[in-house]
Nucleic acid binder design. Structure first.
Length: 425
RNA sequence: GUGGCCAUAGCUCAAUGGUAGAGCUCCAGAUUGUGGUUCUGGCUGUUGCGGGUUCGAGUCCCGUUGGCCACCCCA
């Protein structure tokens, strides 16, 4: 058994993971994002610097053999900010970068949450415009849509920390208490009203008033308007209850939820204009925003949704299938068979043949199990080869030198259909 | 860190305190050259681990480890 909260990826699970990753990469690239990566292990201080005690408690940290205090990355943003602070001069602004890191946290595993998971991180660095906020939200919507979900399945709840900080300013709340107030608002959805009232004190009534009305602002409205122009209005709504726990957010924040409310948040993000400056001790100042979406909750949602599940299963079935299985009907033909198998592979076909002596029914059974489209038989007919279409059952005899052309005719059409299906997703 | 539920074959699960089983998977066959169906046979267990009660414990009790779920927190 793997360690608590960690997963083995057997072929089926690994295929699902790769499927999700490929969708992530495809959509991020559609928006012009480029992929980067960083180290799994960072200095503990990178995370201690700008995070709350709670996050430090859940860090997967230890002292290495060089007596450095290190931690497995709990999120990608500090690494990104560190890299950007050093290398941003090498790139035109804005940077549009994505990464698929495995991240870690030391806590008790539960549904939808382990001690490790993979997440897609997409960030825009060096762009302060509202268009960038809308673009990032459009991207997260398209990432979830590409998996096979519709506006009936999920929604992006969009909020703005500035909306609340302006409010706190107008209520003359001292700035050092803002974070505490924001956390109380963030939690108001998940705990009894009395607890929130107690935490907010005199602000309780006005805050509950705003929450009841829904709250709105010119900034949030313009972002919604932008999404409407893209035809994405059905996927988003303004909801000022969203604040997000991380202290570094400074502007727009958003979270993605399933409409049925069965799962925890599947993605979240926002603007963090000060983080690069803070992590570089003021040396570099760049506005930034980004989001992360994890593979665990997304995978649970896919399995629970018939459409998304069917889409994934058909993609996985065609992905693992071989094109051709070579049946060795006469053991004497093994050398001829492997020569031709190799030739077919050189032409890009996926080809398998039995590695040990096997009776013929069993070879066909194996061909079927491997999802082969064609079986080619090596036996008494040599140098002719019997080619059997395993879907229709039709079998024809083909001369050795005609084989490649024949297979191209039979397989290319189905392969073209397959890639057509993949493109349409 | 706190609490609840659970732990039997690779998987899903049976077994009144009385000889540990079934289905699926896997492997091998069904007269030596044609798959999906079917049939036959075969493999796999210190019943998570350690104590206790009892003539006898998979079953009851205590401890322990692990898993799931919820809380906390949320990257």
């Amino acid at each position: 058994m793997p360690l608590t909260g960690f997963r083995d990826f057997l072929p089926a699970a690994c295929a699902e993971r790769n499927y999700i990753f490929s969708k992530w990469r495809e959509v991020a690239r559609r928006y012009g994002f480029v992929e980067f990566d960083g180290p799994l292990l960072e200095e503990l201080d990178l995370y201690k610097k700008k995070s709350g005690d709670e996050i430090v408690r859940q860090l997967y940290d230890f002292v290495d053999k060089g007596e450095r205090a290190v931690a497995l990355r709990p999120e990608m943003t500090p690494t990104l900010a560190r890299i950007v602070a050093t290398h941003h001069r090498d790139f035109r602004k804005p940077l549009k970068w994505f990464s698929i890191p495995q991240v870690f946290r030391y806590e008790r595993p539960q549904r939808g949450r382990l001690r490790e998971h993979f997440q897609l991180n997409c960030d825009i660095i060096g762009e302060a415009s509202r268009e960038a906020d809308a673009e990032l939200i459009a991207l997260v919507i398209d990432v979830v849509r590409a998996i096979g979900f519709s506006a009936k399945d999920f929604v992006v709840r969009i909020s703005d920390r500035e909306f609340w900080t302006e409010f706190l300013k107008s209520e003359r709340v001292p700035e050092e208490r803002w974070e505490e107030m924001l956390q109380a608002i963030d939690k108001s959805e998940r705990e009894p009203r009395e607890n929130t009232t107690e935490k907010l004190g005199a602000l309780a009534d006005p805050v509950f008033g705003i929450l009841a009305k829904g709250g709105e602002s010119a900034k949030l409205n313009s972002i919604l308007e932008n999404l409407r122009a893209r035809g994405l209005a059905d996927f988003a709504k303004v909801d000022v209850r969203i604040v997000r726990g991380l202290a570094y957010y400074t502007g727009i924040v958003f979270e993605v939820f399933d409409r049925a409310g069965k799962f925890r948040a599947i993605a979240g993000g926002g603007r963090y204009d000060q983080l690069v400056s803070q992590l570089s001790d003021g040396a570099v100042s760049l506005p930034a925003l980004g989001f992360a979406i994890g593979d665990v909750v997304l995978g649970e949602m896919i399995r629970a949704n018939p459409t998304a599940r069917a889409q994934m299963e058909s993609a996985l079935a065609s992905d693992r299938a071989v094109d051709i299985f070579a049946v060795i009907a006469k053991p004497d033909r093994r050398a001829d068979a492997s020569a031709i198998v190799q030739e077919l592979r050189d032409h890009g076909w996926r080809v398998e043949y039995p590695l040990n002596a096997m009776n013929i029914p069993k070879q066909f059974h194996t061909a079927e199990a491997r999802g082969a489209r064609l079986a080619i038989l090596f036996g008494d007919e040599w140098p002719a080869i019997a080619v059997k279409d395993l879907t229709s059952g039709e079998q024809v005899l083909v001369a050795r030198e005609q084989l490649l052309a024949h297979i191209a005719r039979q397989c290319l059409s189905s392969r073209a259909e397959r890639s057509e299906v993949e493109r349409s997703r």
